[in-house]
């Protein structure tokens, strides 16, 4: 028993924590994938990074209430990034997933894993990983990506995409993802208060 106490004092990740990471990553990913189906409506594709964090805020805030150690959000970020990559997004998504997860972890540690304000901000930062998945619509990647779509989706669709994705929009979306995260985080905290506290899950 004394050995266990030592381990948790050292703040190392135990198997129990790793299982929690798995569960909440699964919840997060399934919800994210379901919500991002709005992207199938052509132009709504660019709205995915803003809308999804609002819904996924609910499981993520519960997750953050359970986090007491450093590194769990980083692992979630890596996992989400790797799965997005395997499903055919550019490799940059692994990078943004790792970086956003790590930064979110630092912010969370800053609030000593208790501060609600910090966990909302942390979630806002975490939500920005999705920019790595959508970056192929902007900057140098744009031409090649959209030209490969021209054959698949037709001229009208691609021309519309060209029109609605100027480069400055990327930075707007970065901010949008952050704001979406903040809204989702606050929603999550409200839900947490209303439902999970009573049930004794938190």
């Amino acid at each position: 028993m004394s050995k266990n106490v030592n381990v948790s004092e050292k703040k190392l990740l135990e198997v129990k924590d790793l299982i929690n990471v798995g569960i909440f990553s699964a919840l997060y990913f399934v919800l994210y994938a379901l919500t991002s189906c709005i992207g199938f409506i052509p132009v709504f594709m660019i709205l995915v990074p803003v809308v999804c964090p609002i819904i996924t805020g609910i499981p993520l805030m519960l997750y953050m209430a359970k986090i007491k150690k450093f590194g769990m959000l980083t692992i979630t970020g890596i996992i989400v990034g790797v799965i997005m990559f395997v499903m055919g997004h550019p490799w940059l998504v692994i990078f943004t997933g790792t970086v956003c997860g790590f930064t979110a972890d630092i912010v969370l540690k800053f609030g000593e894993y208790k501060s609600k304000k910090m966990s909302v901000i942390s979630y806002g930062i975490f939500s920005m990983w999705s920019m790595g998945a959508i970056i192929s619509l902007f900057f140098g990647f744009k031409e090649k990506y959209l030209e490969s779509y021209r054959a698949g989706y037709g001229d009208t669709y691609v021309d519309t995409l060209y029109k609605v994705t100027p480069d400055w929009l990327f930075w707007v979306l970065v901010v949008g993802a952050f704001v979406g995260g903040i809204i989702g985080g606050m929603l999550g905290i409200a839900v947490l208060k209303k439902h999970f506290k009573k049930a004794g899950i938190v």
């Binding site: 990740l13 198997v15 790793l18 299982i19 990471v21 798995g22 569960i23 990553s25 699964a26 919840l27 990913f29 399934v30 590194g71 692992i75 979630t76 890596i78 996992i79």
Partner: peptide, 15 residues
């Protein structure tokens, strides 16, 4: 690392 393998496995088992 185990730190990636275990969450991944749990995740696939959980979806």
């Amino acid at each position: 690392s185990d730190k990636i393998v275990i969450p991944f496995t749990v995740m696939f088992r959980f979806i």
